[in-house]
Amino acid sequence: MNKKLKKTYKFAYKTSLYLTLFMTLILGVFLYLLQAFDIIYMLVFAIATYFVSFLTIQHRVERFIYRRVQKIYDDLTLLESTSLRRQPITTDMATLTRQIDKYAKERKIEIETLKVREEYRKEFLGNVSHELKTPLFTVQGYISTLLDGAKDDKALLDKYLMRANKGVERLIYIVKDLDMITKLEVGDLSLNIKAFDIVDLVQSVIELLEMKAAKKKISLIFDRDYSEPIMVMADRERIQQVLTNLVTNSIKYGKEKGTTEISIENLIKNKVIVRVTDNGEGIANNNIPRLFERFYRVDKSGSRKEGGSGLGLSIVKHIIEAHDERIYLESELAVGSEFSFTLEKAK
Rank of each mutant, 00 (worst) to 15 (best):
K3I: 09
L5P: 12
K6P: 09
K7T: 08
T8G: 06
Y9F: 11
K10E: 11
A12H: 04
A12Y: 04
K14G: 10
T15I: 07
L19T: 02
T20V: 05
L21S: 06
F22Q: 05
M23C: 14
L25N: 07
G28M: 12
V29F: 15
V29L: 15
Y32K: 15
L33Y: 14
Q35H: 14
A36C: 09
I39P: 15
I40C: 13
I40P: 12
Y41I: 13
Y41N: 10
F45E: 04
I47G: 05
Y50C: 04
V52D: 13
E62Y: 00
E62Q: 07
F64Y: 14
I65M: 05
R67M: 07
L78A: 00
L78R: 03
S81R: 13
R86P: 01
D92V: 03
T95D: 14
T97Q: 13
I100G: 05
Y103H: 15
E106A: 06
E106P: 04
E118P: 06
E119R: 13
Y120S: 13
F124H: 15
N127T: 02
S129D: 09
L132K: 01
P135N: 01
L136Q: 04
V139C: 04
Q140F: 11
G141W: 08
T145D: 11
D153W: 01
R163S: 12
R163T: 14
G167L: 03
V168P: 03
R170H: 10
I172A: 14
Y173T: 15
I174W: 00
I174H: 03
K176T: 11
D179S: 12
E185A: 07
V186W: 10
D188V: 08
L189Q: 10
S190K: 15
I193K: 08
A195S: 14
D197E: 10
I198Y: 03
Q203M: 11
Q203A: 11
Q203T: 14
E210V: 08
K216F: 07
I218T: 04
I218R: 01
I218K: 02
S219N: 13
F222R: 14
D223Q: 07
D225T: 10
Y226T: 00
M231F: 07
M233T: 07
E237A: 13
R238I: 05
Q240F: 09
Q240W: 06
Q240L: 05
Q240P: 05
Q241G: 09
V242N: 00
L246C: 01
K252C: 03
K257M: 08
K257I: 12
N266C: 11
L267C: 08
I268L: 06
N270R: 02
N270A: 07
R275I: 09
V276R: 02
V276I: 08
N279F: 03
G280Y: 03
G282V: 00
A284P: 09
A284S: 09
N286W: 10
N287E: 14
I288G: 05
I288N: 03
I288L: 03
V298F: 01
V298D: 02
V298Q: 01
S301E: 10
S303L: 00
G307Y: 05
S309R: 04
G310H: 02
L311Q: 04
S314Y: 01
S314V: 02
I315M: 00
I319G: 01
H323R: 12
D324W: 11
I327F: 01
E330A: 05
E332F: 06
G336D: 02
E338F: 06
F339K: 03
F339H: 00
L343R: 01
E344F: 14
K347A: 11
